[in-house]
Design a protein around this nucleic acid. Structure first.
Lengths: 156, 156
DNA sequence: GCGCCGACTGGACAAGCTGTCCAGCGCAAT
DNA sequence: ATTGCGCTGGACAGCTTGTCCAGTCGGCGC
């Protein structure tokens, strides 16, 4: 259970140039095409690579503002709150957490003013006791996985 | 600057079945192949679709624990802290924010015990004054974009 | 040491897709 | 009415994919 150096190089290559096909990848990596196909199949079968969906930029869609909201939930209202938040398109992800606050969600909005509307909609729900919001100013490290993949490739 | 209904349907289709090629997509959407190619080119040129990189699951790589850390930074140490965090593979993303705390980062670890090692490495840096960590227990809404795409497609 | 097994190689094949043209049409704005 | 733009439907060569196959190599158990 893990990935080896070839898996790592394959994932990194696909990350940098998603357009390359299996044949081109086999040339770049210096292995037979069948090997690349087998590795890719295995990576997807084991769930390491979940898919190759389009990576959409919310900012380009007209939602340049990102924020994180920490929510405090009334006892027993968890399921209701989750269902509520799942219906809000501006909620991009939701986690339940330990520590201060019970949930953490990522929001986007059309502007700082629009963020108020989104937050009102998010917290305008009986089960939510308190919410504190942190607006994202910069994103020095965008969501990435390659460094972790390379570490995992070395370890295993 | 925006997307229309056809763009939305195309993105949704690609999200659900990334394997479909341009030709198959044109059949599914009921338009000419050239149209799909032109739309895809435009979506990528305008940055709405940034790419089709592999979606890697950290859990499948051996990092099943996710956490969010709020960091408080000493005045003027921001750039140094960013550079430091960028070198840690377990830091999957980093944001600078308003509100309590100056930065928010997403971490993964091999176990709860291993998370301690990661946190020590993250906060073991002179510029970081204080850190509070929230461990993710559940992820009721995984990172998603389709609902927002559909809303953007309706708006115009 | 022997034999088995899994993984990789290098190659083959038909089928299908991609990239790239083109002419024609309809709609919207000027 | 005229222009511009996007969509259609079709063509073409070139290449890739999916799927076989036999042969080789190294590790593992016996």
């Amino acid at each position: 259970m893990g990935i080896d150096a070839l898996d790592g190089r394959l994932i990194t290559l696909l990350d940098q140039e998603p357009r390359v096909g299996v044949l081109e990848a086999s040339r770049r990596l210096g292995v037979a095409r069948g090997t690349v196909q087998a590795r890719l199949d295995r990576l997807q079968a084991t769930g390491v690579v979940r898919g190759f969906g389009p990576q959409v930029d919310p900012a380009a869609l007209g939602y340049p503002v990102t924020a994180f909201a920490t929510l405090e939930i009334r006892q027993g209202q968890g399921p209701d709150v989750r269902a509520h938040l799942a219906t809000v398109p501006e909620v991009l992800e939701l986690h339940t957490t330990t520590g201060e606050g019970d949930m953490l969600c990522r929001l986007v909005a059309r502007s700082n003013a629009d963020l108020q509307r989104v937050i009102d909609r998010v917290v305008g729900f009986a089960g939510i006791v308190r919410a504190s919001t942190a607006i994202v100013m910069e994103n020095p490290v965008p969501l990435r996985i390659i460094p972790l993949v390379e570490q995992a490739a070395q370890d295993g």
